[in-house]
Design a protein around this nucleic acid. Sequence first.
DNA 1: AGGATTTTCCAAAGCGCTTTGAGTTTCGCC
DNA 2: GGCGAAACTCAAAGCGCTTTGGAAAATCCT
Lengths: 341, 341
Amino acid sequence: MNLKQLSEHLNLSQTTVSRALNGYPEVSESTRTRVLKAAQDLNYRPNLRAKGLATGRALAIGHVIPVSNQHEMVNPVFGDFIAGAGESYAREGFDMMLKLVPDSDETRAYEDIRARGTVDGIIVHGPVINDERIALLSRIGLPFVVHGRSTDVALPYSWIDVNNRGAFERGTQFLIELGHRSIALLNGLEHMDFAFRRRKGYETALRNHGISVDASLMRSEEMTEIYGYRAAKEMLSRSKRPTAFVCSSIITAIGVRRAVHEAGLVLARDVSIITHDDALSYLENGDDVPIFTALRSSVRYAGAEAADMLLSLIAIPKNAPKTRLLEADLIIGRSTGPAVT
Amino acid sequence: MNLKQLSEHLNLSQTTVSRALNGYPEVSESTRTRVLKAAQDLNYRPNLRAKGLATGRALAIGHVIPVSNQHEMVNPVFGDFIAGAGESYAREGFDMMLKLVPDSDETRAYEDIRARGTVDGIIVHGPVINDERIALLSRIGLPFVVHGRSTDVALPYSWIDVNNRGAFERGTQFLIELGHRSIALLNGLEHMDFAFRRRKGYETALRNHGISVDASLMRSEEMTEIYGYRAAKEMLSRSKRPTAFVCSSIITAIGVRRAVHEAGLVLARDVSIITHDDALSYLENGDDVPIFTALRSSVRYAGAEAADMLLSLIAIPKNAPKTRLLEADLIIGRSTGPAVT
DNA sequence: AGGATTTTCCAAAGCGCTTTGAGTTTCGCC
DNA sequence: GGCGAAACTCAAAGCGCTTTGGAAAATCCT
C-alpha cells in the first residue's frame, strides 16, 4: 500500500492525501479525517526512504565510534548513554544508527556519512584532546553534538559534558580532608579529553593542599576491572603503599576492591576508594548505602539531553551551538574512611 | 556532487556512469577506470536514500529491543553482541540501526519497520518462551535472526544460541562432583528463554545425582550486581547455607563474591561460585588464572555470526532458515573448590 | 447578481539513483 | 566489402514521496 494506491482508493490526488496526512492546513477537516481513517484501515505507512529523498531528511541520528576506540561500544557507560538518547529519539520518531568509523581516513568517513544521507546529524563519542573531528564536522556542515569536550579546540560547537575536573578535584579533596596524603589515581586513557581533565582536577586538589604529585601513583588505562586489580595490587605491595584510590569507573573500583581484599586489607579502614561513574544500570552502587563513595552523574540523563540538543539543532539549523555542563554529586558510601596514620 | 553532475562532467550518460560504478559488464574497461577516477577526484558518493529507493534495499540492519526489556540495551552482554555484529556489517557496507519497540502493539511496530523500509532485516533480541514475534515476522516476511531461541515455537526460523541447558547442566554437575549438595541458582528472568533453559540444565544435573530441587535456592531476576549480593547475603545467613552458587552472569557473580566476603567467608573454600557469561570486554574474568570458574562462550563472536547469517539470508532470500548452536567451555578458575562436609 | 476572496483540490516536477529497451559503433569473418 | 554479432552507450521510465504553481469550487461582500 503506497500513497498512490491510497489516493486512488480515496478518489483524491496524491497531493491532497499527502497534505492531509502531514497536517497541512489547506485541506478540509472532513477530508482529513476521511484520509486518516482510510490510512489506518488500509494499514498505510509512508516509505521513509522515499520521504527522506523528497524532504532531504533522514529521520535518523548517527552515533559515531572511532574504530581505534572500539571498546567504547562495549563500555557500559556507552550503553547507558544510548539508552538515554534512544528514549528521546523514539519520542520524536527518529531512528538511531550506530557507526563504526575507521580512523585511517576520518575526513573521508565523515564526508561519507554526510553524502550518503542516512542520518540528519551525529553524536560524537570519545573526544580526545584537540579533536580534529570538530573542525571537520563544522566544515562539512553536518549537525553534531559531542559527548564530552575537546581541550584546545577554539571553534564553538555543541557539547554536553560532566564537570570532570571539578568532580575529581572535589573527590580528591574529600580524601585529603580525611587525612589521606598518598592518593593514587587510576585514570582512563589520558589522550581522551575526559581523562585529561580528571587528572587536572586531581592534581589541583593535591597542589592546593601542598601535596606533591607523585607520578608513580598515577595510571592511565582503559577502565576495566583487571586494570584496577593489577594497578592496586602492585601499589599495595609497596612498602609505602597508598591509603586511597581515586578511580575513573566503578568497574575499575571493583578491581581495586578485589586487590584490597586479596591483600588482606579492609576497605575504608586500611584503604579508601572513591570512584566516578558509579551509576551504571547493571552495576548499581549498592542500594541505600552505596558501596563506594562516588562522584555520581547520570550518564543516561546525559544521553537524553544530548539527543534533545541535537534534535533541536537539526530542527533549527541556524541556532548557535548549545553547551551543557553537568555537575557530579559527591555521594558518601562505605569505601572511604579516615587515613590511618 | 551527484550522478547527474558526474555524468555531465564525464560527457557520459547517467546509465553508463552508474554501470561503471557498480561493476556491470557492459561497460569497457577504459570507460570504467575513467569514471572511477573522476568519482574519486570529485569526491562523488552515491546517496544511499536514492539508491535504496531505486533498488529496494536499505543497506541497514535493525537491532530490535522490546521496550519492556529496555534494560537489555544497557546489559553489557548486549554491548558485546553488537560490537561483534558491527564488525560484520562494516565489512559488508551495512549500517546498524537500534530500535526500541513498544510491546503495546508489536504487530504494528514490526509492520512499521518493514513498511518504512529503513532496514533489510532485523536481529531479534531477548526472545521469551513462545515468543510471538517469530510468527509475526515470518508472516510479514521481514528477514530476521534471533539471538537465542524460543521454546514452544514450532515454525522454522533462523537463530544462533549457546547451549544454555547443556552449559548449566555441566556447570552444576561440576559442582556436584566437587561434593556440593546445596547449590543455589541465581538465574536471569525466567520468562526469558535462555534463563528457562538454564534452569532446566541445572535441575537435570541435580536430578541425575539424586539431589532434590529446592525452590528456596533458586532466584530469578535481572542479572545485576546488587541482585547477586542480596540473594547471596540472604542465603548465606541461613543456618543451613548453600555451599555453591551458579550464576547467570559475571556481574551477578561479583555481587555474590561481595556477599561472601562480607560474611567473612572465603571463596572456593567456604563457598564456590560458577558463572556463565564471564567474557565481557570491560569485566574480564581475571587473566591467566580466571577469578571465577566459568561457562564461557564469546558473545562477541555470536554477534558476528548472527550478522553474517542475516546478511546471507538477505542476499539469498529463498535460503532455508539457518541455525547455530554454540557450546560453552567450562573454564576452571579460582572460585570453586571441594565442598566442606 | 457578480466580482473578490477564501477554501479545496490537483497535475506535474522534482529528490538521486537503477534498469529497461533500444540505438549506435566496432569487430570478426567469409 | 558486407553481414551478423558483440561491445558500448543512451534516453527515459520508474522507486514513493513532497511541494510548487495553479485551477476549480465554495464563500463572502456590496
